[in-house]
Design a protein around this nucleic acid. Sequence first.
DNA 1: TTGACATTCAAACGTATGTTTCATATAAAT
DNA 2: ATTTATATGAAACATACGTTTGAATGTCAA
Lengths: 212, 212
Amino acid sequence: MSQGNKNDPTKKRILDEAEALFAQKGYHAVSVREITAAAECNLAAINYHFGHKKNLYLEVFRSRWLPRSRRVRAHFSKSLTSQKAVSPKAVARALAEAFLMGPLSDEERQRHHQLMVRELGQPTEAFEMVAEQVLQPFFKGLAETLRAFMPEDMEEERLLLNALSMFSVILYFSFARVAVTRITDREYDEQFKALLVEQIVEFCGKGLGKSY
Amino acid sequence: MSQGNKNDPTKKRILDEAEALFAQKGYHAVSVREITAAAECNLAAINYHFGHKKNLYLEVFRSRWLPRSRRVRAHFSKSLTSQKAVSPKAVARALAEAFLMGPLSDEERQRHHQLMVRELGQPTEAFEMVAEQVLQPFFKGLAETLRAFMPEDMEEERLLLNALSMFSVILYFSFARVAVTRITDREYDEQFKALLVEQIVEFCGKGLGKSY
DNA sequence: TTGACATTCAAACGTATGTTTCATATAAAT
DNA sequence: ATTTATATGAAACATACGTTTGAATGTCAA
Protein backbone atom coordinates (compact mmCIF):
# COMPACT_ATOMS: atom_id res chain seq x y z
CA MET A 1 0.00 0.00 0.00
CA SER A 2 0.91 3.68 -0.46
CA GLN A 3 4.70 3.58 -0.63
CA GLY A 4 5.75 1.26 2.16
CA ASN A 5 7.87 3.96 3.77
CA LYS A 6 9.59 1.72 6.25
CA ASN A 7 11.68 4.73 7.22
CA ASP A 8 8.77 6.68 8.64
CA PRO A 9 8.08 6.15 12.32
CA THR A 10 5.55 3.47 13.13
CA LYS A 11 2.92 5.90 14.32
CA LYS A 12 2.96 7.79 11.05
CA ARG A 13 2.83 4.62 9.00
CA ILE A 14 -0.17 3.43 10.93
CA LEU A 15 -1.99 6.72 10.38
CA ASP A 16 -1.20 6.63 6.68
CA GLU A 17 -2.44 3.13 6.12
CA ALA A 18 -5.39 3.50 8.47
CA GLU A 19 -6.63 6.54 6.64
CA ALA A 20 -6.34 4.87 3.27
CA LEU A 21 -8.14 1.76 4.44
CA PHE A 22 -10.86 3.55 6.40
CA ALA A 23 -11.59 5.72 3.40
CA GLN A 24 -11.58 2.81 1.02
CA LYS A 25 -13.62 0.29 2.98
CA GLY A 26 -15.15 2.03 5.97
CA TYR A 27 -14.48 1.67 9.67
CA HIS A 28 -16.08 -1.68 10.32
CA ALA A 29 -14.77 -3.36 7.20
CA VAL A 30 -11.18 -2.74 8.23
CA SER A 31 -9.54 -4.82 10.95
CA VAL A 32 -6.64 -3.68 13.09
CA ARG A 33 -4.70 -6.67 11.78
CA GLU A 34 -5.21 -5.41 8.25
CA ILE A 35 -3.89 -2.00 9.22
CA THR A 36 -0.85 -3.30 11.06
CA ALA A 37 -0.08 -5.61 8.16
CA ALA A 38 -0.22 -2.70 5.72
CA ALA A 39 1.85 -0.53 8.05
CA GLU A 40 4.29 -3.39 8.56
CA CYS A 41 4.22 -3.20 12.31
CA ASN A 42 3.17 -5.32 15.23
CA LEU A 43 -0.46 -5.91 16.09
CA ALA A 44 -0.08 -4.31 19.50
CA ALA A 45 1.33 -1.11 18.01
CA ILE A 46 -2.12 0.33 17.41
CA ASN A 47 -3.16 -0.10 20.99
CA TYR A 48 0.17 1.20 22.17
CA HIS A 49 0.11 4.35 20.06
CA PHE A 50 -3.61 5.05 19.92
CA GLY A 51 -5.25 3.14 22.72
CA HIS A 52 -7.92 1.52 20.63
CA LYS A 53 -9.24 1.30 17.09
CA LYS A 54 -11.95 3.91 17.47
CA ASN A 55 -9.45 6.43 18.70
CA LEU A 56 -7.19 5.72 15.75
CA TYR A 57 -10.10 6.56 13.47
CA LEU A 58 -10.64 9.81 15.32
CA GLU A 59 -6.95 10.58 15.18
CA VAL A 60 -7.06 10.15 11.41
CA PHE A 61 -9.56 12.96 11.30
CA ARG A 62 -7.73 15.10 13.82
CA SER A 63 -4.27 14.87 12.39
CA ARG A 64 -4.96 14.21 8.73
CA TRP A 65 -8.41 15.19 7.58
CA LEU A 66 -8.70 18.53 9.32
CA PRO A 67 -5.31 19.87 8.19
CA ARG A 68 -5.98 18.78 4.64
CA SER A 69 -9.32 20.49 4.79
CA ARG A 70 -7.58 23.69 5.80
CA ARG A 71 -5.18 23.38 2.90
CA VAL A 72 -8.04 23.09 0.44
CA ARG A 73 -9.84 26.01 1.96
CA ALA A 74 -6.70 28.12 1.92
CA HIS A 75 -6.23 27.31 -1.74
CA PHE A 76 -9.78 28.36 -2.43
CA SER A 77 -9.51 31.61 -0.48
CA LYS A 78 -6.27 32.52 -2.16
CA SER A 79 -7.52 32.04 -5.70
CA LEU A 80 -10.59 34.06 -4.78
CA THR A 81 -8.80 37.05 -3.32
CA SER A 82 -6.36 37.12 -6.22
CA GLN A 83 -9.25 38.21 -8.40
CA LYS A 84 -10.70 41.66 -8.65
CA ALA A 85 -14.29 41.23 -9.74
CA VAL A 86 -16.10 38.55 -7.78
CA SER A 87 -18.64 36.91 -10.04
CA PRO A 88 -20.70 33.74 -9.65
CA LYS A 89 -18.54 31.95 -12.16
CA ALA A 90 -15.36 33.08 -10.47
CA VAL A 91 -16.49 31.63 -7.18
CA ALA A 92 -17.63 28.41 -8.82
CA ARG A 93 -14.32 28.09 -10.62
CA ALA A 94 -12.24 28.73 -7.55
CA LEU A 95 -14.27 26.21 -5.61
CA ALA A 96 -14.29 23.54 -8.30
CA GLU A 97 -10.57 23.86 -8.87
CA ALA A 98 -9.76 23.77 -5.17
CA PHE A 99 -11.77 20.61 -4.65
CA LEU A 100 -11.23 18.81 -7.95
CA MET A 101 -7.71 19.73 -8.94
CA GLY A 102 -6.40 21.90 -6.14
CA PRO A 103 -3.54 21.22 -3.75
CA LEU A 104 -4.29 17.52 -3.20
CA SER A 105 -3.03 14.53 -5.08
CA ASP A 106 -5.66 12.42 -6.74
CA GLU A 107 -5.29 9.76 -4.11
CA GLU A 108 -5.52 12.23 -1.25
CA ARG A 109 -8.59 13.83 -2.70
CA GLN A 110 -10.38 10.55 -3.10
CA ARG A 111 -9.62 9.56 0.48
CA HIS A 112 -10.61 12.96 1.75
CA HIS A 113 -14.01 12.99 0.14
CA GLN A 114 -14.77 9.39 0.90
CA LEU A 115 -14.09 9.91 4.58
CA MET A 116 -16.26 12.98 4.48
CA VAL A 117 -19.20 11.30 2.80
CA ARG A 118 -18.98 8.44 5.27
CA GLU A 119 -19.37 10.90 8.10
CA LEU A 120 -22.19 12.69 6.33
CA GLY A 121 -24.02 9.42 5.90
CA GLN A 122 -23.62 8.15 9.42
CA PRO A 123 -21.99 10.65 11.71
CA THR A 124 -19.66 9.38 14.39
CA GLU A 125 -17.75 11.36 16.99
CA ALA A 126 -15.58 12.67 14.20
CA PHE A 127 -18.52 14.50 12.67
CA GLU A 128 -18.72 16.85 15.60
CA MET A 129 -15.14 17.90 14.93
CA VAL A 130 -15.68 18.21 11.21
CA ALA A 131 -18.89 20.19 11.51
CA GLU A 132 -17.58 22.58 14.10
CA GLN A 133 -14.11 23.20 12.75
CA VAL A 134 -14.72 22.95 9.03
CA LEU A 135 -18.27 22.81 7.73
CA GLN A 136 -19.81 25.59 9.79
CA PRO A 137 -17.10 28.21 9.26
CA PHE A 138 -16.56 27.24 5.64
CA PHE A 139 -20.19 27.55 4.59
CA LYS A 140 -20.72 30.69 6.64
CA GLY A 141 -17.78 32.23 4.85
CA LEU A 142 -18.90 31.02 1.47
CA ALA A 143 -22.37 32.41 2.07
CA GLU A 144 -20.82 35.79 2.86
CA THR A 145 -18.85 35.65 -0.36
CA LEU A 146 -21.99 34.95 -2.34
CA ARG A 147 -23.75 37.93 -0.82
CA ALA A 148 -21.60 40.20 -2.99
CA PHE A 149 -23.50 39.40 -6.15
CA MET A 150 -26.80 38.05 -4.96
CA PRO A 151 -29.93 40.10 -4.34
CA GLU A 152 -29.30 42.34 -1.35
CA ASP A 153 -32.39 41.23 0.51
CA MET A 154 -31.58 37.54 0.29
CA GLU A 155 -31.63 35.95 3.74
CA GLU A 156 -28.61 34.13 5.05
CA GLU A 157 -30.53 30.88 4.87
CA ARG A 158 -30.91 31.12 1.12
CA LEU A 159 -27.27 32.07 0.73
CA LEU A 160 -26.31 28.97 2.69
CA LEU A 161 -28.53 26.80 0.53
CA ASN A 162 -26.86 28.19 -2.57
CA ALA A 163 -23.46 27.49 -1.10
CA LEU A 164 -24.54 23.95 -0.28
CA SER A 165 -25.97 23.45 -3.75
CA MET A 166 -22.75 24.46 -5.40
CA PHE A 167 -20.74 22.31 -3.06
CA SER A 168 -22.94 19.29 -3.63
CA VAL A 169 -22.18 19.23 -7.34
CA ILE A 170 -18.47 19.40 -6.71
CA LEU A 171 -18.55 16.75 -4.03
CA TYR A 172 -20.58 14.44 -6.22
CA PHE A 173 -18.24 14.60 -9.18
CA SER A 174 -15.36 13.86 -6.91
CA PHE A 175 -17.03 11.20 -4.86
CA ALA A 176 -19.17 9.28 -7.30
CA ARG A 177 -16.41 8.58 -9.78
CA VAL A 178 -17.59 5.08 -10.45
CA ALA A 179 -21.05 6.20 -11.43
CA VAL A 180 -19.86 9.16 -13.45
CA THR A 181 -17.36 6.98 -15.26
CA ARG A 182 -20.01 4.41 -15.92
CA ILE A 183 -22.56 6.87 -17.23
CA THR A 184 -20.35 9.12 -19.32
CA ASP A 185 -18.01 6.32 -20.38
CA ARG A 186 -14.98 8.49 -19.60
CA GLU A 187 -11.96 7.99 -17.40
CA TYR A 188 -10.96 10.54 -14.78
CA ASP A 189 -7.88 11.80 -16.61
CA GLU A 190 -6.71 15.40 -16.56
CA GLN A 191 -8.68 16.23 -19.67
CA PHE A 192 -11.93 14.95 -18.25
CA LYS A 193 -11.37 16.67 -14.94
CA ALA A 194 -10.87 19.93 -16.81
CA LEU A 195 -14.14 19.31 -18.61
CA LEU A 196 -15.81 18.66 -15.27
CA VAL A 197 -14.56 21.94 -13.92
CA GLU A 198 -15.99 23.72 -16.95
CA GLN A 199 -19.30 21.95 -16.47
CA ILE A 200 -19.41 22.92 -12.81
CA VAL A 201 -18.47 26.52 -13.54
CA GLU A 202 -21.19 26.75 -16.16
CA PHE A 203 -23.87 25.02 -14.17
CA CYS A 204 -23.19 26.59 -10.79
CA GLY A 205 -22.25 29.92 -12.27
CA LYS A 206 -25.64 30.20 -13.88
CA GLY A 207 -27.32 28.65 -10.86
CA LEU A 208 -25.96 31.45 -8.69
CA GLY A 209 -26.62 34.17 -11.21
CA LYS A 210 -29.68 36.29 -11.75
CA SER A 211 -32.62 34.76 -13.55
CA TYR A 212 -33.88 36.64 -16.57
CA MET B 1 -37.65 -1.49 14.55
CA SER B 2 -40.03 -0.47 11.75
CA GLN B 3 -43.35 -1.84 12.98
CA GLY B 4 -42.60 -5.31 14.22
CA ASN B 5 -45.08 -6.89 11.83
CA LYS B 6 -45.02 -10.32 13.38
CA ASN B 7 -47.78 -11.26 10.95
CA ASP B 8 -45.59 -10.90 7.89
CA PRO B 9 -43.77 -14.01 6.78
CA THR B 10 -40.27 -14.42 8.11
CA LYS B 11 -38.60 -13.85 4.79
CA LYS B 12 -40.29 -10.49 4.36
CA ARG B 13 -39.48 -9.40 7.90
CA ILE B 14 -35.85 -10.24 7.37
CA LEU B 15 -35.73 -8.21 4.17
CA ASP B 16 -37.40 -5.27 5.86
CA GLU B 17 -35.07 -5.16 8.81
CA ALA B 18 -31.99 -5.99 6.78
CA GLU B 19 -32.63 -3.10 4.44
CA ALA B 20 -33.15 -0.66 7.26
CA LEU B 21 -30.00 -1.79 9.05
CA PHE B 22 -27.79 -2.00 5.99
CA ALA B 23 -28.85 1.49 4.99
CA GLN B 24 -28.36 2.85 8.47
CA LYS B 25 -25.02 1.29 9.38
CA GLY B 26 -23.54 -0.32 6.29
CA TYR B 27 -22.97 -3.95 5.39
CA HIS B 28 -20.06 -4.73 7.66
CA ALA B 29 -21.40 -2.91 10.69
CA VAL B 30 -24.51 -5.07 10.74
CA SER B 31 -24.37 -8.65 12.00
CA VAL B 32 -26.77 -11.39 11.02
CA ARG B 33 -27.62 -11.74 14.68
CA GLU B 34 -28.67 -8.10 14.77
CA ILE B 35 -30.90 -8.63 11.76
CA THR B 36 -32.54 -11.76 13.08
CA ALA B 37 -33.10 -10.08 16.43
CA ALA B 38 -34.82 -7.14 14.73
CA ALA B 39 -36.84 -9.47 12.52
CA GLU B 40 -37.71 -11.59 15.56
CA CYS B 41 -36.68 -14.83 13.97
CA ASN B 42 -34.11 -17.51 14.47
CA LEU B 43 -30.47 -16.99 13.65
CA ALA B 44 -30.48 -19.75 11.05
CA ALA B 45 -33.40 -18.21 9.16
CA ILE B 46 -31.12 -15.98 7.14
CA ASN B 47 -29.04 -18.84 5.88
CA TYR B 48 -32.15 -20.88 5.27
CA HIS B 49 -33.94 -18.22 3.24
CA PHE B 50 -31.02 -16.44 1.60
CA GLY B 51 -28.04 -18.76 1.77
CA HIS B 52 -25.63 -16.24 3.24
CA LYS B 53 -25.36 -12.66 4.39
CA LYS B 54 -23.92 -11.27 1.19
CA ASN B 55 -26.78 -12.69 -0.81
CA LEU B 56 -29.29 -11.15 1.57
CA TYR B 57 -27.69 -7.79 0.88
CA LEU B 58 -28.01 -8.39 -2.84
CA GLU B 59 -31.58 -9.51 -2.45
CA VAL B 60 -32.35 -6.25 -0.67
CA PHE B 61 -31.31 -4.44 -3.81
CA ARG B 62 -33.06 -6.85 -6.14
CA SER B 63 -36.39 -7.01 -4.43
CA ARG B 64 -36.54 -3.67 -2.65
CA TRP B 65 -34.22 -1.04 -4.06
CA LEU B 66 -34.81 -1.62 -7.75
CA PRO B 67 -38.62 -1.61 -7.56
CA ARG B 68 -38.58 1.51 -5.45
CA SER B 69 -36.29 3.14 -7.93
CA ARG B 70 -38.79 2.38 -10.66
CA ARG B 71 -41.56 3.92 -8.61
CA VAL B 72 -39.62 7.15 -8.22
CA ARG B 73 -38.78 7.27 -11.88
CA ALA B 74 -42.37 6.60 -12.86
CA HIS B 75 -43.47 9.44 -10.62
CA PHE B 76 -40.97 11.72 -12.27
CA SER B 77 -41.94 10.73 -15.80
CA LYS B 78 -45.59 11.16 -15.06
CA SER B 79 -45.30 14.65 -13.64
CA LEU B 80 -43.15 15.58 -16.62
CA THR B 81 -45.50 14.36 -19.34
CA SER B 82 -48.44 15.98 -17.61
CA GLN B 83 -46.94 19.33 -18.54
CA LYS B 84 -47.10 21.01 -21.91
CA ALA B 85 -44.08 23.26 -22.10
CA VAL B 86 -40.90 21.57 -20.97
CA SER B 87 -38.65 24.13 -19.37
CA PRO B 88 -35.48 23.78 -17.28
CA LYS B 89 -37.36 24.67 -14.15
CA ALA B 90 -40.14 22.24 -14.91
CA VAL B 91 -37.67 19.39 -15.20
CA ALA B 92 -35.85 20.46 -12.06
CA ARG B 93 -39.12 20.67 -10.17
CA ALA B 94 -40.37 17.30 -11.32
CA LEU B 95 -37.05 15.73 -10.40
CA ALA B 96 -36.73 17.43 -7.03
CA GLU B 97 -40.27 16.56 -6.06
CA ALA B 98 -39.94 12.96 -7.17
CA PHE B 99 -36.79 12.47 -5.13
CA LEU B 100 -37.47 14.69 -2.14
CA MET B 101 -41.18 14.44 -1.60
CA GLY B 102 -42.42 12.01 -4.22
CA PRO B 103 -43.98 8.59 -3.75
CA LEU B 104 -41.72 7.45 -0.90
CA SER B 105 -42.17 7.85 2.79
CA ASP B 106 -39.50 9.80 4.57
CA GLU B 107 -38.05 6.65 6.04
CA GLU B 108 -38.04 4.85 2.71
CA ARG B 109 -36.36 7.76 0.99
CA GLN B 110 -33.62 7.97 3.53
CA ARG B 111 -32.90 4.26 3.26
CA HIS B 112 -33.03 4.40 -0.49
CA HIS B 113 -30.50 7.17 -0.84
CA GLN B 114 -28.21 5.87 1.82
CA LEU B 115 -28.00 2.48 0.17
CA MET B 116 -27.32 4.22 -3.11
CA VAL B 117 -24.55 6.43 -1.80
CA ARG B 118 -22.93 3.44 -0.16
CA GLU B 119 -22.78 1.70 -3.50
CA LEU B 120 -21.50 4.85 -5.20
CA GLY B 121 -18.71 5.11 -2.67
CA GLN B 122 -17.59 1.50 -2.75
CA PRO B 123 -19.38 -0.51 -5.38
CA THR B 124 -20.18 -4.13 -4.62
CA GLU B 125 -21.92 -6.66 -6.81
CA ALA B 126 -25.11 -4.70 -6.33
CA PHE B 127 -23.68 -1.74 -8.18
CA GLU B 128 -23.63 -3.65 -11.44
CA MET B 129 -27.36 -4.19 -11.11
CA VAL B 130 -28.04 -0.61 -10.12
CA ALA B 131 -25.92 0.89 -12.87
CA GLU B 132 -27.31 -1.29 -15.60
CA GLN B 133 -30.95 -1.31 -14.67
CA VAL B 134 -31.35 2.16 -13.19
CA LEU B 135 -28.54 4.67 -13.56
CA GLN B 136 -27.70 4.17 -17.24
CA PRO B 137 -31.28 4.25 -18.59
CA PHE B 138 -32.35 6.99 -16.22
CA PHE B 139 -29.59 9.40 -17.11
CA LYS B 140 -29.78 8.61 -20.79
CA GLY B 141 -33.46 9.43 -20.65
CA LEU B 142 -32.92 12.54 -18.61
CA ALA B 143 -30.28 13.74 -21.05
CA GLU B 144 -32.75 13.31 -23.88
CA THR B 145 -35.31 15.33 -21.99
CA LEU B 146 -32.82 18.12 -21.50
CA ARG B 147 -32.04 18.25 -25.18
CA ALA B 148 -35.40 19.90 -25.79
CA PHE B 149 -34.29 23.24 -24.39
CA MET B 150 -30.54 23.14 -24.56
CA PRO B 151 -28.45 24.35 -27.49
CA GLU B 152 -29.05 22.03 -30.41
CA ASP B 153 -25.40 21.31 -31.00
CA MET B 154 -24.70 20.24 -27.45
CA GLU B 155 -23.09 16.81 -27.36
CA GLU B 156 -24.66 13.99 -25.41
CA GLU B 157 -21.73 14.08 -23.00
CA ARG B 158 -22.55 17.59 -21.90
CA LEU B 159 -26.21 16.75 -21.57
CA LEU B 160 -25.29 13.86 -19.32
CA LEU B 161 -23.09 16.07 -17.19
CA ASN B 162 -25.95 18.51 -16.77
CA ALA B 163 -28.25 15.70 -15.78
CA LEU B 164 -25.69 14.48 -13.28
CA SER B 165 -25.19 17.97 -11.89
CA MET B 166 -28.85 18.42 -11.26
CA PHE B 167 -29.15 15.02 -9.71
CA SER B 168 -26.18 15.61 -7.43
CA VAL B 169 -27.85 18.57 -5.76
CA ILE B 170 -30.99 16.60 -5.13
CA LEU B 171 -29.14 13.59 -3.83
CA TYR B 172 -27.06 15.73 -1.51
CA PHE B 173 -29.99 17.46 0.11
CA SER B 174 -31.61 14.12 0.69
CA PHE B 175 -28.51 12.29 1.81
CA ALA B 176 -26.57 14.80 3.84
CA ARG B 177 -29.39 15.72 6.17
CA VAL B 178 -27.17 15.86 9.18
CA ALA B 179 -24.84 18.37 7.61
CA VAL B 180 -27.62 20.46 6.09
CA THR B 181 -29.46 20.51 9.40
CA ARG B 182 -26.31 21.48 11.19
CA ILE B 183 -25.39 24.26 8.80
CA THR B 184 -28.79 25.81 8.23
CA ASP B 185 -30.04 25.10 11.75
CA ARG B 186 -33.33 23.79 10.38
CA GLU B 187 -35.18 20.53 10.80
CA TYR B 188 -36.35 18.50 7.82
CA ASP B 189 -40.03 19.21 8.25
CA GLU B 190 -42.46 19.66 5.39
CA GLN B 191 -41.90 23.38 5.30
CA PHE B 192 -38.17 23.09 4.99
CA LYS B 193 -38.43 20.39 2.36
CA ALA B 194 -40.66 22.68 0.34
CA LEU B 195 -38.04 25.39 0.66
CA LEU B 196 -35.40 22.94 -0.49
CA VAL B 197 -37.42 22.09 -3.57
CA GLU B 198 -37.69 25.79 -4.37
CA GLN B 199 -33.96 26.20 -3.90
CA ILE B 200 -33.24 23.27 -6.18
CA VAL B 201 -35.67 24.47 -8.82
CA GLU B 202 -34.10 27.92 -8.77
CA PHE B 203 -30.51 26.75 -8.75
CA CYS B 204 -30.80 23.92 -11.23
CA GLY B 205 -33.35 25.71 -13.36
CA LYS B 206 -30.92 28.54 -13.90
CA GLY B 207 -28.01 26.13 -14.15
CA LEU B 208 -29.68 24.40 -17.06
CA GLY B 209 -30.87 27.59 -18.69
CA LYS B 210 -29.19 29.81 -21.22
CA SER B 211 -26.45 32.12 -20.03
CA TYR B 212 -26.84 35.78 -20.91
C1' DT C 1 -52.63 -42.21 9.98
C1' DT C 2 -48.96 -41.93 7.38
C1' DG C 3 -45.43 -39.77 4.83
C1' DA C 4 -43.12 -35.98 2.68
C1' DC C 5 -42.04 -31.40 2.69
C1' DA C 6 -41.12 -26.74 4.41
C1' DT C 7 -39.88 -24.06 8.25
C1' DT C 8 -38.15 -22.99 12.85
C1' DC C 9 -35.27 -23.82 16.68
C1' DA C 10 -31.25 -24.33 20.15
C1' DA C 11 -26.80 -25.48 20.01
C1' DA C 12 -22.48 -25.85 18.28
C1' DC C 13 -18.64 -25.13 14.76
C1' DG C 14 -14.47 -22.86 13.33
C1' DT C 15 -12.57 -18.56 12.56
C1' DA C 16 -11.79 -13.54 13.04
C1' DT C 17 -12.19 -9.82 15.91
C1' DG C 18 -10.32 -5.98 19.39
C1' DT C 19 -7.56 -5.94 23.23
C1' DT C 20 -4.13 -7.36 26.87
C1' DT C 21 -0.09 -9.33 28.70
C1' DC C 22 4.52 -9.69 29.52
C1' DA C 23 9.01 -10.45 27.78
C1' DT C 24 12.42 -8.30 24.99
C1' DA C 25 14.97 -4.79 22.50
C1' DT C 26 16.77 0.04 21.91
C1' DA C 27 18.80 4.08 23.41
C1' DA C 28 19.37 7.99 26.21
C1' DA C 29 20.17 9.65 31.20
C1' DT C 30 22.33 8.89 35.66
C1' DA D 1 27.39 0.09 34.30
C1' DT D 2 22.89 0.73 35.80
C1' DT D 3 18.68 2.69 35.43
C1' DT D 4 14.79 4.61 33.02
C1' DA D 5 11.72 5.48 29.42
C1' DT D 6 10.12 4.21 24.95
C1' DA D 7 9.02 1.03 21.65
C1' DT D 8 8.45 -3.55 19.56
C1' DG D 9 7.58 -8.42 19.65
C1' DA D 10 5.04 -13.16 20.03
C1' DA D 11 1.40 -15.15 22.24
C1' DA D 12 -2.78 -15.44 24.44
C1' DC D 13 -7.44 -13.58 25.96
C1' DA D 14 -12.34 -13.31 25.68
C1' DT D 15 -15.82 -12.29 22.72
C1' DA D 16 -18.32 -11.81 18.32
C1' DC D 17 -18.77 -13.33 13.89
C1' DG D 18 -20.95 -16.12 9.72
C1' DT D 19 -22.32 -20.54 8.99
C1' DT D 20 -23.75 -25.48 9.86
C1' DT D 21 -26.07 -29.16 12.11
C1' DG D 22 -29.73 -32.11 13.41
C1' DA D 23 -33.69 -32.39 15.99
C1' DA D 24 -38.39 -30.41 16.59
C1' DT D 25 -42.33 -28.34 14.67
C1' DG D 26 -46.03 -27.37 11.54
C1' DT D 27 -48.79 -28.36 7.03
C1' DC D 28 -51.15 -30.81 3.89
C1' DA D 29 -51.82 -34.43 0.40
C1' DA D 30 -52.28 -39.47 -0.01
